[in-house]
Computed example of a mutant assay.
Amino acid sequence: MSGDAGVVEGPLHGYHHETYVAPLPGGEVRWKCREPRPGLLWFDRRCFASEEELLRALQRRIDGIPDLIQAGSASLQRFIEGETLGALYGSGREIPPFLLGQIVSLFWQLARVKPDSLAAERTCTSDDRAAEGDTAEFLERLILFTEKRVYRRNMPKFEGLFRDLDLHAGSFGHLRKQVSGLTRRPFCLLHADLHRENFVIDAQGRLWTIDWELAMFGDPLYDLATHLYLMRYPQDQESRMKERWRAAVEDAAPGSSAGWEEDLPKLLAFKKAQSVFTDVSRTALSLAEEPEVDERVLVHAGGRMQEVLRAAATPLGIDSPTVEHVTASLEKWYFKNYTPVGAERLPRPGPRPRPCVGS
Rank of each mutant, 00 (worst) to 15 (best):
Q237R: 09
A49K: 09
A312T: 03
G160K: 06
L316R: 04
S75W: 00
L264T: 07
F199R: 05
L298N: 06
A225D: 05
A273L: 07
A71T: 03
P234D: 02
Q235A: 15
A269H: 01
Y89A: 11
T84Q: 06
V113D: 01
S50W: 00
E132P: 04
H174Q: 14
V179L: 06
L139F: 00
L190E: 02
T146S: 13
D116S: 13
R246E: 14
E83T: 10
S91K: 09
A169P: 11
V8K: 03
T327N: 00
C124Q: 11
A312F: 01
G160F: 03
H300F: 13
R352K: 13
D223S: 08
L165G: 08
Q235S: 15
M1H: 06
T183R: 11
P11H: 02
A343D: 09
Y334T: 02
H325E: 12
T123P: 04
A192E: 00
G14F: 01
E81S: 12
L167H: 08
L76T: 03
L330C: 09
L330M: 10
G358D: 04
L264P: 11
G205S: 09
W108K: 13
P23N: 08
V280A: 12
R152T: 08
G317L: 08
G6E: 03
G86K: 07
E243L: 14
P186F: 00
W208F: 10
D223L: 08
P36E: 07
R244I: 06
L55Q: 02
V7F: 00
A120Q: 03
H195I: 06
V297H: 02
E52A: 15
D319K: 14
P23G: 12
A225R: 04
I69S: 02
I80E: 03
N154A: 15
T226L: 14
W245R: 05
V323R: 07
C356A: 12
R196C: 11
S281F: 00
M216K: 11
R93M: 15
V179T: 13
R141K: 12
E262T: 09
E290V: 09
Q77N: 10
L268Q: 07
G358F: 01
H325P: 10
Y20E: 07
M241K: 03
S171D: 11
D116W: 06
L316K: 05
V326N: 03
F138R: 01
G39Q: 07
P353G: 13
G358C: 12
L182A: 01
G170I: 11
P254A: 10
G3H: 06
L144C: 15
R34S: 14
K266A: 09
V7D: 02
K336T: 11
V150H: 05
L167Y: 00
H227F: 10
N154L: 15
A313N: 06
K157H: 12
Y229E: 10
L182N: 00
C356W: 01
A131P: 07
L144F: 04
Q204V: 09
R46V: 14
I210G: 05
W108Q: 12
Y229V: 05
K114L: 14
D251P: 01
A71Y: 00
G358T: 06
E94K: 12
L285M: 14
Q178M: 13
P353I: 07
E51Y: 02
A131N: 01
F43C: 11
A313M: 09
R352D: 10
F217R: 02
G350Y: 01
P355I: 08
A136D: 02
A225N: 03
G302N: 02
Q102M: 08
K157M: 12
